[in-house]
Amino acid sequence: MRPSAPPPAADTPRPAGQAKTRRNAPAPRRASLRIHDLHDLASVARQLREEHERAEAQAKAQREAAARLEAERHLFSRSVGPVTSLRNPNLARLRHRQPPPLPVQHWLDEERVLLESISDDFDVSTLLDTDDQLSYRRPGIGVEVTRRLRAGHWSIQRQLDLHGLRVDEAREALGQFIRHTHKIGLRCVRVVHGKGLGSPGKSPVLKSRVQRWLVQKNEVLAFVQARPMDGGAGALVVLLKPANHRNT
């Protein structure tokens, strides 16, 4: 029988080179992981540093703005010196301002005077010049005034058209028109009453009434029938007193 080979001893030493190679085999992988981790840490550190710098810059800007506001707040005291606040502000307590009163009664009085000053019962025939156009001039006004008014010496500054109005509406509109134009300083106006072509009987309804109403207005100095280019028989050209002229 062949003698069996003795089992190898458990602590038989291995070659030194082989043992070192097996222990250090994973070393390259761990080295690459460490390098990658260091790169990430550097990136994080850089981001933290940038955020810190931004926060510092923002805080600095806020401090500077607060300092400027505080300097502006104390600008007066630094300019004039020490200031002592008054214990008693000495301020009057005012009530809320009331709206101005409306002159309602004055308006009512003016309206009543307006209605009373123009009457349909007034006889105007004796006051009109008996020419073909029945012109009117207030006593004391010379004939040359109506002649110049008819010739267009004064420019027509405003016009009132009474077409389509009832008699009471036309009377009120004419009174307001004469009062307003005289108040704002106009001198020459035109009142259109129509020729009556659309009225029953083809006769003017407002023509004689407008003449009667105008004669009763103190603001009126004279009136004549308008020239054909200004309305002819369907309108009157009215001359008013100056605004600063006292009514008599």
Rank of each mutant, 00 (worst) to 15 (best):
P89S: 07
P99D: 13
L86M: 12
L75Y: 04
N88A: 06
L128P: 00
S135M: 02
R158N: 05
D129Q: 08
T126L: 07
L114T: 05
R95N: 06
E144P: 07
F76D: 07
H74I: 03
D123Y: 14
E111Q: 04
V143D: 08
N88H: 10
D123F: 12
N90F: 11
T146I: 15
I141K: 06
L75R: 01
S119P: 06
L149S: 01
W154S: 01
V104M: 11
Q157I: 14
L114Q: 08
L134S: 14
R68H: 04
V104D: 12
H74D: 02
A71H: 04
E110W: 03
R97N: 01
D109L: 12
L102E: 11
L127K: 00
R78N: 02
L86C: 12
T146F: 01
R147H: 05
L102D: 08
R158E: 03
R137D: 00
Y136W: 05
H106I: 01
H153L: 14
L128I: 14
D123Q: 12
D109K: 07
D121V: 07
V80S: 04
P89N: 13
E116Y: 10
W154I: 00
S79Y: 10
H106M: 07
Q62N: 03
A151C: 04
P89D: 11
T146V: 14
T130F: 09
A61V: 14
